[in-house]
Design a protein around this nucleic acid. Structure first.
Lengths: 117, 117
DNA sequence: GATCTATATTCCTTTAAAGGTATATAGAAT
DNA sequence: ATTCTATATACCTTTAAAGGAATATAGATC
């Protein structure tokens, strides 16, 4: 069942935060690092985990690895990401991450090719 | 995050099957056993796991333990169960379980207090 | 009170994930 | 060619989950 793989990805708080931020648009590792306030290894490993299961895609831009949600998500993935968006609206952690993203987006756009303009 | 606990419950195929069947109504362990074709320990342990995290509720009727989805699910749980229902429509395993349930429901209703009439 | 039935729990083994430290890699800049 | 920057990987330790075998429990029946 592909569904199980999706849920495996969703059952860690860090990964949920990554996906929540990604719903706003592509981003690179160092910016995730700054927004979540977590060490590089942790971010990098969780993104690798998500990537291995098809929940995110990557594109290299020079030194930066820009992660994004899949361009063509499966029915199941689309449904679950929408559900997550719905559930995340109220959670303070998710909201704080998005607030930080919004605040930093202009600088991000200057210093890297993250499409977070 | 309560969300994580929900996803932890959803990231096992057996538990997904249990929840899918439960969406049709309360059921007791031995009937799950028959429908899923899995040993008693396995069913029982996964139901305990779900129960410990609030995804199911139990009521004893004589020797039978009748499991059911929560009477008053949280917003998050409701959303995710609905999403699961949506995703499960097409999966052959889920469909087979429901077919077996439908076929056996009359007998279940005779031999136990499972409300599966 | 002994037995039967449905279910839960204990114990064990195996596997996987998480987090951290240290190190490697790939491309850019000098 | 060396150095710098962003990111990935390897290695280690700890923790949790899964599955099975055996056993315990609680209520019903005889």
């Amino acid at each position: 069942m592909e569904l199980v793989q999706i849920y495996e990805c969703l059952c860690d708080p860090t990964r949920l935060r990554l996906l929540n931020v990604l719903a706003q648009g592509p981003l690179c590792v160092c910016h995730f690092q700054e927004i979540l306030g977590e060490p590089q290894v942790k971010i990098s490993k969780h993104l690798a985990y998500l990537r291995a299961r098809g929940l995110v895609e990557v594109e290299r831009h020079g030194n930066w690895m820009v992660y994004a949600l899949p361009a063509r998500p499966s029915r199941e993935l689309k449904a679950n990401l929408a559900c997550l968006q719905d559930c995340a609206q109220e959670d303070p952690v998710f909201k704080r991450d998005l607030a930080r993203l919004k605040k930093r987006a202009p600088q991000f756009a200057e210093t890297s090719p993250c499409g977070c303009s």
